[in-house]
């Protein structure tokens, strides 16, 4: 059994003629934070969606803590229960209070008693400065607060892996900080995370490893210092130059 939480071996994904992922190999070790960067259309989001089995891979294999989750007879609900996902547009359920959003999976999927789930949820929400919002509906919250609730919802069931897909892209710049601080806290607590982002300074400070996606493949992988200060590929250099000198 490997110590990797996530392993991708030669993952391909095609949408009709569009070959989006062209053989992705990638591992995320336990307690590691891997940040995926790359231009729009480089396959970052598709990569995230294949790992959560929202998109079926057209070739290759994905292992979650050693289990092949791309096997044809795998129970997708069980796999998804082991992975936490946070989306760009929060995707909170507007007809439920914050507390019900956060405890839904714990109660209905993991069979945790409502009172126990509530206690844990209130604890987590308080830790992240949302104690007063417990019984509010999502539309009473700012974007930053909503996204923090969405993160709490994702970590509520202690997933083995957390997928964060451009979670600050839909936020007001003033609100980005509070969400990123939360992600830093999660890293400090030892969460295993794979995140796609356009926030380069954040990527640099929080990532253990950076993956630069280009043309449907991880073109360059390495520690943040190396990727940002001494990129090996001209495409990586060009991408970073465009982002920093606009």
């Amino acid at each position: 059994m490997s110590a990797s939480v996530l392993e991708l071996h030669g993952v391909h994904k095609l949408f009709g003629d569009n070959h989006v992922l062209r053989g992705v190999d990638l591992t995320v070790a336990s307690h590691e934070v891997v940040v995926v960067i790359g231009a729009s259309g480089s396959g970052k989001s598709t990569l995230m969606r294949t790992i959560n089995l929202i998109e079926r891979v057209d070739d290759g294999r994905i292992l979650l803590s050693g289990d092949d989750i791309t096997a044809p007879d795998v129970d997708v609900d069980k796999v998804r229960a082991r992975i936490g996902v946070v989306f760009q547009h929060f995707n909170l359920f507007p007809h439920m209070r914050v507390i019900d959003n956060v405890t839904l999976a714990a109660r209905k999927v993991h069979g945790i008693e409502a009172s126990v789930a509530r206690e844990k949820a209130v604890g987590l929400l308080s830790t992240f400065g949302l104690a007063e919002k417990v019984d509010d509906y999502p539309d009473r919250l700012s974007g930053g607060q909503q996204q923090r609730v969405a993160i709490v919802r994702a970590i509520m069931t202690d997933p083995e892996l957390l997928l964060l897909d451009e979670i600050t892209s839909a936020l007001d710049p003033m609100l980005v900080g509070e969400v990123l601080d939360l992600v830093r806290d999660l890293k400090a607590q030892g969460s295993t995370m794979l995140m796609a982002t356009h926030e380069m300074s954040f990527a640099r400070s929080v990532a253990d490893r950076i993956v630069f996606m280009h043309g449907g493949r991880p073109l360059e992988v390495g520690p943040p210092e190396q990727i940002f200060e001494d990129p090996q590929h001209p495409e990586t250099r060009e991408f970073l130059a465009r982002l920093t000198h606009r």
């Binding site: 391909h12 003629d17 057209d58 070739d59 294999r61 044809p72």
Partner: peptide, 21 residues
């Protein structure tokens, strides 16, 4: 893209998976 699609041929693993499905 088009050339890449033609070049893409599924591995034995994927063919086995398709057969299973």
């Amino acid at each position: 893209d088009r050339a890449a699609v033609e070049a893409f041929s599924p591995s034995a693993l994927e063919l086995d998976r398709r057969l299973h499905r």
